[in-house]
Write a protein that binds this DNA or RNA. Sequence first.
DNA 1: AATAATTTTTAGATCAATCTAAATTTTTTT
DNA 2: AAAAAAATTTAGATTGATCTAAAAATTATT
Lengths: 221, 221
Amino acid sequence: MMQNSFTEENYLKIIHALSGREGLEVSTNALAESTSTRAASVTDMLRKLAEKGLIHYKKYQGVRLTEAGEKVAINVIRKHRLWEVFLVEKLGFGWDEVHDIAEELEHIPSDHLVERLDAFLGHPRFDPHGDPIPDAKGNLTEPDYLVLTDVQIGEKVRMMGVLDHAPSFLQHLDRAGITLGSVIEITEINEYDKSASVQINENHTLFISLEVSKNLLVQRR
Amino acid sequence: MMQNSFTEENYLKIIHALSGREGLEVSTNALAESTSTRAASVTDMLRKLAEKGLIHYKKYQGVRLTEAGEKVAINVIRKHRLWEVFLVEKLGFGWDEVHDIAEELEHIPSDHLVERLDAFLGHPRFDPHGDPIPDAKGNLTEPDYLVLTDVQIGEKVRMMGVLDHAPSFLQHLDRAGITLGSVIEITEINEYDKSASVQINENHTLFISLEVSKNLLVQRR
DNA sequence: AATAATTTTTAGATCAATCTAAATTTTTTT
DNA sequence: AAAAAAATTTAGATTGATCTAAAAATTATT
């Protein structure tokens, strides 16, 4: 059985991300946007992936992963997230620095390597951004965290992940002293712009904008 | 300045290997052989590398690396060997298993990554096969080991590296109990086929063929 | 030094991934 | 339901890395 190329793997990973939990159809344009290519290029690649049995594709009707395609996508995600753990935990990178490097490492082909890396890291369940790491069998269970905007005043929650992975956002959180595991209590919400005062780890208070709240994943305790 | 492709890096690495310590000219055919391509393909690539200033190339006259090309080649070698150390020391791979994986990892582009990896590994000077690891500035000093065939009967030497990196050879050494650091004493050489009896670590004796002797790098003590 | 053998390069194609421009299909709006 | 707008696909080209077959240059042999 032929190997999938770097590019093919990226398409599958992006289709997985865009189709969401429900496995919705993904549009050609959305893929063009996410892959930074033109729609015509996407069409070509979709035909190819369909031929390989990795996606369900009917002209003009968007695209979904097949079981086989899903398997490939999840394996790429597994590798990406394991490498991110390695870069942060072992090499001392910041969580804002690892995405691009992991984007390359995720395509290194060797099951043997992934399994040994996984063991070396102690079979981590989550990556440095709080995203769950699929197991070797491809089981990926998204924990049902809530977004901070859904939390009431007075409630204490634990910060578990981010929706936006942009370095600038992560650096913003660093400066605010918010990291995975931080305890957050909303002390006040401003009606006007929905910005909020929050207390972090019961010891310092700060303002966060709605934009930030929308991108913080938390868990009730 | 544009990045070099995976393929370009491989050509430079192979030119470096084939031109040896003296920086001799490398022939088109030798490159075709080593890259598993045809001579015509090599010619195309050479023109391209010459245009980029990475090699000295005149038609029909073989090829040498420029300073710039040498720098790229040595950096690839540095990455390859550091990753091999990682795979063996941290992930527990055998020295016979790491070449192909390192062949992929060596092309991951990030100076930051290499330097952190180097530090994580404790700035190793040699890879799992005894090959020296160039430093961050690109200094690569080949230690002047001798080949076991140049060792006299009765002399005790230390095994420091291998010339042949083939898994089958390395596995053969594993079975014979010969590893980096082993003390080897030649007790007898057979005139007929130059095979030898050797004592390993002063505790067990075995026969090795000329083929093996030719590929063992050792050091006097 | 002429001829033969070998090596290398050129010419012209192919394949994967991309592009632009034009055509087609689907969706939305009037 | 027609027309307009948007999305998608097709047609034809381009780029990087490769190929085969043929031509040219170099090297070796007589």
